[in-house]
Design a binder for these strands. Structure first.
Length: 417
DNA sequence: TCTGGGGTCCTATGCCTT
DNA sequence: TCTGAAGGCATAGGACCC
């Protein structure tokens, strides 16, 4: 059996833990740069849609007396770790699926009362961390997602815990769930499936699986099997990342390559730093540039370029150098660029990779990187920069409604008078 | 003025080799 | 030497997730 434990309105709930005045109040949490709404308390859901651009809803925030908060990732990350550590007390097989949810697998728990066990999980997280959760339990991962949806939708009837443990319950659940709400069915697939008469998740399970395999991708085939109750999707190891990315939208647009190179150099530095932090090296680098996708009147442009290194590296110097070369290759004149990103992938552990006969990391880089990381760690606010980064300008994220880092900064710890 | 960011997985395409 | 089939690999990009 699998369980899906999902925190309710996670970011909004985290904010409430340390500010009980927000309980039962409508609150929203904004994305980086205070761009759009990414979490809403139940009270706010009536008024504000998910993903609402903050600038368009400013008046509504005031009209409905909604508390607006900037996202506080140090707080959410720390709260998430606490929740996940509790989950490992219930089974050793835990897959942290995202910051606010995890799959659990129960192997050899056959005689367990799952409903009761789910309630224990939920209650312990509520009591020890103060975060409300929903728990869905079923024979496969995809069905545990469905069960979780039912627990969320019918809190009074289910108490936030729902178990699919019979064929009858499975069919009833799938006949209730509309196709677009199924995990893995997004906007595009939903449209295609509806054309075929798939309205409910149940209709999807009734499609001929050979036909599905030849007309859709392997992903949909696996999903169908899982929804039929045949476990195909397994718990995955999420502890080692497969890629690291730093991508940002700019406050305004850039058309000059010098500005773009400066930004990309900074993103590359940030990726390399994250890479060394998890003690890995990378084989490949991808740089992306794009124009403003919301701007109708101007030429749209999206481009990316990947670069393969002759040997795995985590040197900021090498990664930045190659990233800048890539910018030169894909830069097109006359475009107003709104967004750029650096992604590094092909990650291998620091100390265990194939050496190249002809070319290997310059040994001086390693000690230099150690010094840079040490200094940056010590003087967090004023990091060492490369000469091709802008030394004068400071790029500050907009965070006009930020709450304190209650759990990760001793100076911001909650005070009781 | 102001529309997020970090991931995973899959597929299409073109080129090369057998 | 040419040809087509088939598979591997690199690369780009789409779709989806939270």
């Amino acid at each position: 059996m699998f369980a899906l434990v999902d925190c309710n309105n996670f970011y909004a709930s985290c904010e409430r833990v340390f500010n009980p005045g927000l309980l039962n109040q409508p609150i929203v949490v904004l994305s980086n740069n205070d761009g759009c709404v990414i979490s809403r308390s139940d009270e706010a859901k009536k008024f504000i849609p998910m993903g609402a651009p903050a600038f368009k809803f400013k008046q509504d925030f005031e009209r409905f007396d909604i508390t607006v908060l900037s996202s506080n990732y140090p707080l959410y990350g720390d709260m998430s770790e606490r929740v996940m550590s509790i989950l490992t007390q219930f089974t050793p097989d835990v897959e942290v699926y995202s910051i606010d949810e995890a799959f659990l697998e129960f192997k050899g728990f056959d005689t367990l009362d799952f409903e009761d066990y789910g309630k224990k999980i939920k209650n312990r997280i509520a009591k020890w961390i103060g975060i409300p959760t929903c728990v869905g339990i079923a024979p496969t991962k995809a069905l545990s997602k469905v069960a979780n949806k039912i627990a969320r939708k019918f809190p009074k009837e289910t108490g936030g815990v729902y178990v699919i443990d019979s064929e009858e319950k499975r069919i009833r659940a799938l006949k209730w769930l509309t196709i677009e709400k199924v995990w893995g069915i997004g906007y595009r697939l939903q449209k295609r499936l509806k054309e075929k008469g798939c309205i409910k998740a149940y209709d999807f399970t009734q499609l001929d699986s050979n036909w599905l395999r030849s007309n859709f991708s392997i992903t949909e085939w696996k999903l169908q099997q899982d929804l039929k109750g045949i476990p195909v999707l397994q718990l995955e190891d999420t502890t080692t990342k497969k890629a690291i990315a730093t991508t940002r939208s700019f406050e305004s647009t850039f058309s000059d390559i010098i500005d773009l190179k400066e930004r990309v150099a900074t993103f590359a530095m940030s990726c390399a730093e994250k890479l060394r932090k998890q003690q890995s090296c990378c084989y490949m680098l991808i740089v992306t540039l794009s124009s403003n996708r919301y701007e109708k009147d101007q030429e749209r442009y999206k481009a990316s370029k990947s670069v393969i290194f002759s040997h795995p590296t985590n040197s900021s110097l090498l990664i930045t150098k190659e990233a800048l070369k890539a910018v030169e290759m894909i830069f097109k004149k006359g475009i107003n660029y709104k967004r750029a990103g650096v992604i590094i992938t092909g990650l291998v552990p620091n100390d265990n990779y194939q050496l190249n006969i002809f070319e290997n990391e310059n040994p001086k880089h390693k000690s230099l990187m150690n010094v840079i990381d040490f200094v940056n760690n010590k003087y967090k606010s004023d990091k060492i920069k490369l000469a091709n980064q802008d030394l004068e300008r400071t790029w500050k994220m907009r965070q006009e409604h930020l709450s304190p880092k209650y759990t990760t900064n001793i100076n911001q710890i909650i005070k009781v008078k």
